[in-house]
Amino acid sequence: MNEFIGSMDITAKGCNLYYGDFHALKDINIEIPEKQVTALIGPSGCGKSTFLKIFNRMNDLVEGCRMEGEYRIGGVDIFDKETDVNVLRKNVGMVFQKPNPFPMSIYDNIAFAPRTVGITKRSELDEIVERSLRRASIWDEVKDRLRKNALGMSGGQQQRLCIARSLAASPKVLLMDEPTSALDPISTGKIEELMEELKKDLTIVIVTHNMQQATRIADKTAFFLLGELVEYGNTDDIFTSPRDERTERYITGRFG
């Protein structure tokens, strides 16, 4: 069985993805460095989210989805027969566009992943829950109501809870699919600060529609257009001196 140990950089080589006849991703090659924030930007429907979901194999659940290419995280081929998809997903957490807390208590939400791997000792679970909530900087807000239903929280809190829930599985990579698009600016700010903290230990890949957000948080930025990776590089370079004309037109708001 393949384990995820060592560095957590992500590589995709010759990535092609089809939904039925539709060629959704076209020959993408990318190397994403570990312990940095990499933003995927581009207009709607250009394949950013699809590309993101390759790395925790969520596309496996999509009917009629077909893929070519080689995908590695920390050197491990994630589509290898020796790679257990559930082990992969424990190591590669995901935060979705719409907060999706489970309809159970805050505590049980966080304890869900550890319980899945068989941790049942109360003291151990308590510790994981507190640590995860602290890392998602939401501990102080919820520590007095851990037994309350998570659906009673505000949207921004729910999203940080979902981040904490992912962290409780001790992932090494965090994929974020427009995590702040449904949130108000204050909640968005909190999550951006949080990412700054988290990247000390985690490789973060974020899909965002918000270019200001990319400039604020991302070390690297990749620009997608119609299923192609148009340009990829340091965020500063992409936004100040893009090499491709299409990138320039997009970041200056002239299309997309």
């Binding site: 925790n56 969520m58 659940l61 998809v85 559930n86 082990v87 992969l88 997903r89 424990k90 190591n91 957490g93 995901m94 979705f96 719409k98 999706n100 807390p101 489970f102 309809p103 159970m104 869900f112 992943a113 899945t116 979902c162 829930r165 992912s166 599985a169």
Partner: peptide, 24 residues
């Protein structure tokens, strides 16, 4: 979204059904 959320944590299908879907 609940199913997706559970799968994304590395939860098996059976556990997702019994712990998330059926209770809901």
């Amino acid at each position: 979204g609940l199913r997706e959320g559970a799968y994304a944590l590395g939860t098996s299908k059976v556990r997702t059904i019994f712990k998330i879907v059926l209770p809901s």
